[in-house]
Write a protein that binds this DNA or RNA. Structure first.
Lengths: 224, 224
DNA sequence: ACAAAAGTGTTCCCAATACACCCATGA
DNA sequence: TCATGGGTGTATTGGGAACACTTTTGT
C-alpha cells in the first residue's frame, strides 16, 4: 500500500522598495526547525490544492493572494527526511502594501526577503524558488502580471523599474512607455505624486477589463 | 491522518500519417473498465515521478520515451471515484516509427489516436490532454521539439506539415524554409527520397549538438 | 506532355532600437 | 539656481510577410 503525503508550498512574490521580495516563514517544528522556508503544508483530505495553498497562507502568514497559479510538483524520494512527500508548488503574486503579514499557527516568524538577500532555505525550497523566479521572468514578458505586484495606483517609473529589476536589464524609458501606452490598457489618473525632489509624476491604473476585452479580440501582451 | 494517493499520467504525442496522434490504453479494470485512458498509474514508494512514468509506459504500452517533461498536477477531490488521487501529468514526445506498441499488464489494448478522432476518455483525462495540446502548440514555437516527433531523417516538407498541423494554420513555404535554414541547426543529407510523384526531396537531420552550442551562445529558437 | 511536389529571391512595411533635450518641482 | 526625476519625438534598421515561377521526377 502506497504511503506518500501530498503537500503544497507557495512562492509568494511581492515588490517592495524597488526590489523583488519573497515571503518566507520561520519553521516552528522539526525538521529544519528555526530555518526559513516557503509557506505551505499538507493538503487536507477534502480540499482542493488551491484551497490548501490559500488556507496555509492565511494560517501561516495572514496573506491573501491576488494572483495564484500552479508552478511545478516536486517529488524526489528523500526531499523530506521524514516521509515521502510530494509537494505541489504554487506561484503567487501580491501587493505587499495591501497586506499585514503576521506569524501564526505553525510559523515562528514571517518576513519579506529581497531576492538579493535570501537566507538558507529548508528542504529543496531553493530549487522551487529558482523555478518560480524563472516563471516570473518569463511570464512578465507575455502577460500583464507586473500590475499584480504594484499598488493599484502606480507611477510609470515604478512599472519601468519593476521590469528592469526582474528582467535584470536596462530598458529605454521612451521606448518602454511608447510600447505600454500603445496597448491602451492603462488609465492615466488626474493625480500627481511628488516623490521628494523632481517633477511630480502622474499616477496610472491597470485597466483589467480593457485588457480582457482586447485579449478576447486577439491582442497579445508582449514586452521584450 | 492524510489518505491521498499519488499517480502519474502521460500524454504521449506522436506524429503519424501527417497527423498528430496520442497514445491511449484501454482500461482492463474498474473504474472506467473498457474506457480509453492516458497511460499511467500509482507511484511506487521509492521511485521518482519520472521513473514512475517511464515504468508505467513500458508496462502498459511498450513505449520508451524520447522527450519527457512535467505538465501539470491534477488534484481536485472527486476526480477519481474511489479515493482521493493526485495525478502528476507528464508530457511526452516519441517518434512512432521507432516503437512497436503492445498492450501488457494493466492494459487491455493500446493504440495511437489521431487528435481529430478521439474517443471518450476516463477520469478527467480530456482536461489533461487539452492542457498537453496547448503546451505542445506553445512549445513548438520556442523550442525545437518538433524534431522529437519526426524520424531522425526527415523531409523538409514533413517539418513544414507538422508545424501547419499542430499550429493549425497555413505557413508560407519559402519564409518557413528561410527561417529554419537561417538557424543552421539542420544537416542536409546526400540522400533523396521520392514520395510517389513529384521531384524527389532531400533528407535532413536535426543537429542537436549544434543547437545546444548555439543555445549556449544565446541563440533563441523562435517560429511564429 | 503533364501532373505533382520540391526548391528558390525580391519587395514592402512595420515594429524594435537608438538616441537627447525640455519640464516641473523642492531644496 | 541647481539638482532631481518626469515626460516626450524622430531617424534608422532589420526582420516578418506577401508573393510566383522553375526544376525534377513518375506516369
Amino acid at each position: 500500500m502506497q504511503n506518500i503525503r501530498v503537500a503544497v508550498d507557495a512562492v509568494v512574490f511581492g515588490y517592495k522598495d524597488h526590489q523583488l521580495n519573497v515571503l518566507l516563514i520561520k519553521r516552528k517544528v522539526a525538521p529544519f526547525q528555526g530555518s526559513w522556508a516557503l509557506p505551505g503544508g499538507l493538503v487536507l483530505e477534502n480540499e482542493s490544492l488551491e484551497t490548501a495553498v490559500e488556507r496555509e497562507l492565511k494560517e501561516e502568514t495572514n496573506v491573501t493572494i491576488d494572483y495564484l497559479e500552479q508552478l511545478y510538483s516536486f517529488g524526489k524520494p528523500g526531499r523530506d527526511p521524514r516521509n515521502r512527500v510530494i509537494s505541489v508548488a504554487y506561484f503567487a503574486l501580491v501587493k505587499p502594501a495591501h497586506h499585514t503579514i503576521k506569524a501564526d499557527t505553525d510559523a515562528q516568524d514571517v518576513a519579506w526577503f529581497p531576492m538579493t538577500e535570501l537566507p538558507e532555505l529548508a528542504f529543496d525550497h531553493h530549487i522551487i524558488l529558482e523555478k518560480a523566479k524563472t516563471r516570473l521572468r518569463n511570464k512578465l514578458t507575455y502577460e500583464p502580471i507586473g500590475f499584480d505586484l504594484l499598488s493599484t495606483k502606480f507611477l510609470f517609473s515604478d512599472l519601468e523599474k519593476l521590469y528592469m529589476t526582474i528582467l535584470e536589464k536596462k530598458i529605454d524609458r521612451r521606448n518602454f512607455r511608447k510600447k505600454i501606452m500603445s496597448f491602451e490598457i492603462l488609465e492615466e489618473l488626474d493625480e500627481k505624486v511628488s516623490e521628494g525632489r523632481g517633477r511630480p509624476a502622474n499616477l496610472f491604473k491597470f485597466n483589467k477589463k480593457q485588457y480582457f476585452k482586447l485579449q478576447k479580440e486577439g491582442f497579445l501582451f508582449d514586452i521584450k
